[in-house]
Design a protein around this nucleic acid. Structure first.
Lengths: 154, 154
DNA sequence: CGCAGCTCCTTGACGCGTCAACAAATTCCA
DNA sequence: TGGAATTTGTTGACGCGTCAAGGAGCTGCG
């Protein structure tokens, strides 16, 4: 039997390191800009976007957690912080005594509306403005393949 | 003057969300596997890889920080934790009384040598095994473009 | 020499994410 | 109906990353 590890080729290794660098730098940069310009974290941003996408600006706690793909514990902690900052409000659920709605506040709406244009601009500036349509398609394919891989195995 | 935000097209938006999902899922997955199988974080892994790449297994503190692209504060905290776990050791620097060398310990070497094959296997399984050479090239180009963008602007 | 300024690194406080344990309400089913 | 199992969400402890402040050694310049 052969348990020699299948190391990455030099090419693959180079690509992998560049890819990792890209990931960390990009998220760091976007996060920093969002934070300093709009006083929101990427996490805040994701939550608020999901709440504004729904007509009455409120969602069940776990539905929201599924939407942003967080586990309930993280959601709970993060919502607590967002409530403290006035971005979001808890409302009790008449149908289910355990449950809760999370609703965006006017301050939350103001924050996301102020943040979104700048954030989108940053995403354009750092990513899409310099990608050809072929590259866009390639990035889409690659991302989907990897997502599929991570999802189809435990 | 036109300060209408240049929103993303529906296509771009879809790609962007998939890309973000890919990033978070991939790093979460790789991190989790590394942690449960080898008791190392990605951060530990990067540090140890850099230390094994150098002949005597030791580097100046700030040189190491530059290699993994961390600021000194993060480096300091992380090295403290790795010292506590016996993966790494501080050695004083004869030439410079302020300075320090960080040296990998035998335990550290054992840890990275045990971890590397499994980690590489995971990277293969989740990424490279399913990428055509065209996709590899595309990913390389895209990553480099984005890295260049983030680096060339403050 | 002497001291001003710089480099190298540490520290403490705080927000964040995860894990495990838990509480309370609801549902299932015998 | 009534108790077991499940669902919904919270909490506390702990490791991690960042920011601002600081300490200790070195360097350059008068």
């Amino acid at each position: 039997m052969d348990d020699t590890p299948r190391w990455l080729t030099p090419d693959e290794q180079r690509v992998w390191r560049t890819f990792l660098r890209m990931q960390t730098q990009l998220t760091a940069r976007l996060g920093r800009e969002l934070q300093t310009e709009s006083n929101l974290s990427m996490a805040d941003y994701g939550v608020l976007v999901n709440l504004t996408d729904v007509p009455d600006g409120r969602m069940r706690f776990l539905e929201l957690a599924r939407a942003v793909e967080w586990e309930k514990s993280r959601m709970s902690h993060h919502i607590a912080r967002m409530v403290r900052r006035g971005l979001v409000r808890r409302e009790e659920c008449p149908d289910d005594g355990r449950g809760a709605f999370i609703a965006i506040t006017p301050e939350g709406r103001a924050a996301i509306e102020a943040a979104a244009p700048r954030h989108v601009e940053a995403v354009r500036r750092l990513v899409f403005d310099h990608l050809s349509s072929e590259q866009l398609a390639a990035l889409d394919d690659i991302s989907r393949q990897i997502v599929a891989r991570t999802e189809q195995t435990p």
